[in-house]
Amino acid sequence: MNTFDLNHVTIGYEQKTVLEQLSFSIPHGKITVLLGANGCGKSTLLSTLARQRDALGGEIAFRNKPLDSYRAKEAARLMAFMPQVNVAPDGLTVEQLVRFGRYPYQTFFKRYSEDDERAVERALAFTDTVSLRDTLVSNLSGGQKQRVWIALALAQESETILLDEPTTYLDMSHQIEILDLMYRLNRLEGKTIIMVLHDLHLACRYADHVIALAGGNVYREGSPNDVVDETFMKDVFGLKVVVTEDPLYGTPLCVPYSHYELNEKRPT
């Protein structure tokens, strides 16, 4: 079973088409990364899959059912979405924020339960944020905030997690920390992870499946080794590169030429 199946889907906003006639599938239980140049529609596609906006045409199936056939709380139990920009209300602690992840399970007759408590504690433990539980979210560092928002998504206990640029504005150490966490969620918990990433090297290292967007449609998809080469980099990013092998993981590593001829000798 695929997590998503798209059939001739057109997406955009305010009746402006961004991507059209998309037909592809996102595999279940894998890490899929959406790639492409700025403005190509990656975030718009991800937010459409997350039901934050409606498709302009075509059919999207989620777990073999029409995406729009799910009720809001039912969908929230099955998928969690972390947008690029997250803002917590003032005065909210980490634990209070993570508890919001249990909202899909609340009803008028069923309030916060022991199951909810266990889910929150597990999410805090998995993201190593237990020690931050009483800290105001506004007082956290960038890397800590990202882990806390991921904890909120984990508290939903959804099998599919969609993240829009989860490593933006983080230094290299925190980028690896967040992506290692996604890898653990996938390999240990069986979560389907769908991400937008800008760092091509890290995308190739962590992704099982990549979907590259260009020219309003899918340019190429498959494993990183099948997708990323010199032609791909020229066509999608307009960049001349040498593609070599990551010495640690054997995934594609792109070494770009400069746009400017660099003639001066570098000090050694």
Rank of each mutant, 00 (worst) to 15 (best):
E230L: 14
S258H: 07
Q156C: 01
A119N: 12
G143D: 02
L46R: 10
F237A: 03
M1Y: 03
D246A: 09
V130R: 13
L253T: 08
L136E: 06
V130E: 04
A214I: 10
V241E: 12
M195Q: 13
D180N: 14
T135V: 14
L213V: 01
R122H: 12
R53W: 07
A75K: 03
R99P: 01
Y13Q: 10
T135L: 06
T251Q: 08
L181E: 14
R266D: 15
H198R: 13
H209K: 00
M172F: 15
A61L: 07
I26V: 05
E189P: 09
R71F: 05
A212W: 08
N217T: 14
S223T: 10
A214E: 03
E14R: 09
T268H: 11
L49A: 05
K65M: 12
Q96K: 13
R184C: 11
I60W: 12
A212E: 05
P83W: 00
T231E: 12
G190Y: 13
N86K: 13
S223Q: 05
S258I: 11
G101T: 12
T129G: 08
V18K: 14
R102L: 00
D5G: 14
G29D: 02
G91L: 07
T10D: 02
S43D: 00
A37C: 04
L22M: 11
P252Q: 05
T244S: 06
A37G: 04
Q96W: 10
G190I: 10
E245F: 05
A72W: 01
D208I: 00
P252M: 04
L56W: 03
L202W: 02
W149F: 11
A80N: 15
Y206P: 01
Q144P: 08
G250V: 04
R122E: 09
R187G: 09
L248H: 09
A125S: 11
S138D: 08
K73E: 01
K191E: 04
L152T: 14
E264S: 11
L67F: 13
E157W: 13
F237V: 02
P267R: 00
R266N: 15
R53I: 06
D171C: 07
S43W: 00
V148L: 04
V120K: 15
A50Y: 00
T167C: 04
K30G: 06
L124R: 11
K145G: 07
Q106H: 13
D246S: 11
R147C: 15
Q52N: 10
Y103M: 06
D5E: 15
V236D: 02
